[in-house]
Nucleic acid binder design. Structure first.
Lengths: 345, 345
DNA sequence: CGCATGAATGTGACCGGTCACACAAGGCGC
DNA sequence: GCGCCTTGTGTGACCGGTCACATTCATGCG
């Protein structure tokens, strides 16, 4: 016990060496489990380590070995359920591999700000995971200098121009396909789509899954409504849909959007699922408790985070296994917000 | 441009020194803005820095200077809105002060696991912020070795036995008081309380604010219902409250809980706010879009995070200002879920 | 004019580990 | 008894910065 109270400098391997009567190199060998250390010597060193409360200095280790054992997560937001879950998944795996997790928030999608954040992440050494579901994230992923170990959590695994990068993703196309088919199978003539902002100029996977289901069923394809990420966006988008009596089924880009849509329909006096059916994506924790509870497609964000780390870990260390992503497939969860259209009850 | 493609070792100050024809120390002086460097020399060094793309190695800086410029946030969860917002607030301030943000999730409240996480945070150097709203967090805060710079984000600023620590907090007592008074002023005889788990054995600030409002109004004080953090807990807790016709107003420990309560009341056929009024805490993003929209007390989590960092920053650096926490006071947000009791409409 | 002073710059040690290599002692084959 | 390999251990340099101190040179002042 340090009774004096003032923090004394922590013990280094040389302190331990002196205490054990060996050289610092021997201490290093003991720490790293090197085989050729005489058992009696090892014993003495371990005793000294114990007595002095020695802990290996992570900074010095990083400097000397060149490996930081750190993963920095770049994300536009930490409060969205999906983003936060991915982060939690990464942290979980990282902790198991005794990696530290750093986080950088991409406040704006402005090039300079994004570049600065990426630089900070690069400075930290180790690997980078970019959550690239939104413009800021996509820009960040593109701004990572070549040669740095990086994994993108992306909407769609498309090759960005001029470079191979590893990505992880969920099968959003399949998810949208399932949800749309579900709504069509209830008897709806078609399904309207309120979209989250697309991260790229290309058609999003969700949009194309929705489109495919419509096409297969021979249903007319309404123009998708572009919206934002949160409930307010869904609410705004649904105000006009609610006025159109031919709208009987709405698929929403995520559960937050769906919440706003539900609200707008309620305000417009259109009962759900009596007149209009609504479905979302993600299966956020609150979705099951809404009134009406929300039909949605569950996505395995935590698994996605774990997969991202696994991939990065494989790139960072030879020995680490590069597992194929064990991300669960999207699962349709049918609840109260979807039902047959008014005519077919 | 590095056309060869293979990553070459980044330039060090000695590389820059060689390129500029000065000593490494002069480069160091330029980097750190030391006054006594001849302008022409400075110019040459800056040119070399630019040309070689030199960036100061954060690891070496940390090792040599002893300062890590890192803050590690320990939290039980990253997906809860409040926790995630605090994290975002910390990150925002940290970024402005060019500190890196690390994150450690307290998976369980088990002593060994918590101690391990705290150790990891301590190993990272720099400061620690512990979100101590729950048992895991409280335990972590207690497990931080004395002498380490730490700030706790706590429910109530109580002195833990045997030590002074800095904390930040919101005025939960006031928040609960306001919400309870609001409900009483609508004419309810009393207000029932569904509580989030208390982080300590002592009465939580929310509970005592609620109690005080009841007492001042001469209202009977029902036994608080202990619940969990999520909607499922609120749902379970409200099942019995819903059966009791004398229950006309329910205050919930947070908005998630309130969501579960709303759902349970709906299932029990008790209209809100027709028969029962419900209020929550936090003003989570979805609360305004629920049906009925939720009366709640807005808490400034982001500000709380900023305050936590400011305090830590002050402890870590002499020069940094130790601002008094500029956390906004709780603000009652009245929405649809609260109204007069059935008799008084 | 000589010397103290300060500006501008360089040298060496250090932070706490790791890596490459040297070296002594002991076992074995010949 | 000699060389050789293996085992156990120590020494020196290094990672990329910072810090303390030495050195050089131009200046100001008595």
């Amino acid at each position: 016990m340090n009774v004096t109270g003032h923090t004394r400098r922590p013990a280094s391997i040389r302190d331990v060496a002196t205490a054990a009567g060996v050289s610092y190199q021997t201490v290093s060998r003991v720490i790293n489990g090197h085989p050729s250390v005489r058992p009696s010597t090892r014993e003495r060193v371990l005793a000294a380590i114990e007595e002095l409360g020695f802990r290996r200095n992570a900074t010095a280790l990083a400097l000397a070995s060149g490996r930081t054992r750190t993963v920095t997560v770049l994300t536009a937001n930490t409060t969205h359920y999906g983003y936060a879950s991915i982060l939690q998944g990464i942290e979980e795996s990282a902790r198991a591999a005794s990696y530290a997790v750093g986080i950088g928030v991409l406040e704006s999608a402005e090039d300079a700000a994004v570049a600065a954040e990426v630089q900070r992440a690069a400075d930290a050494g180790g690997g980078i995971v970019v959550i690239a579901y939104d413009p800021a994230g996509v820009r960040a992923l593109g701004a990572v200098p070549a040669g740095l170990p990086v994994v993108g959590v992306v909407e769609t695994p498309a090759s960005p121009p001029g470079g191979e990068s590893p990505w992880v993703w969920t099968d959003d196309r399949e998810a949208a396909y399932q949800a749309t088919r579900h709504l069509l199978s209830l008897g709806h003539e078609t399904v309207h789509y309120v979209a989250i902002p697309s991260s790229t100029r290309r058609t999003s996977a969700r949009t194309s899954g929705w489109r495919q289901a419509l096409k297969e069923a021979g249903a007319p394809e309404p123009r998708p409504v572009q919206s934002s990420w949160g409930p307010a966006g869904g609410h705004a988008a649904a105000l006009e849909l609610a006025r159109d009596p031919s709208v009987t089924a709405v698929l929403c880009g995520n559960d937050d959007l769906a919440l706003g849509v539900l609200r707008a329909l309620h305000e417009a006096g259109r009962p759900v699922p009596g007149e209009v059916s609504v479905a979302g994506f993600d299966d956020a924790p609150h979705s099951a408790f809404l009134t009406p509870s929300l039909t949605t497609v569950r996505l395995d964000f935590t698994g996605l985070g774990r997969a991202a780390f696994a991939l990065l870990h494989g790139a960072l260390e030879e020995s680490a296994p590069v597992a194929p992503h064990p991300v669960s497939v999207p699962e349709l969860v049918v609840r109260e917000s979807s039902g047959p259209p008014p005519g077919e009850r």
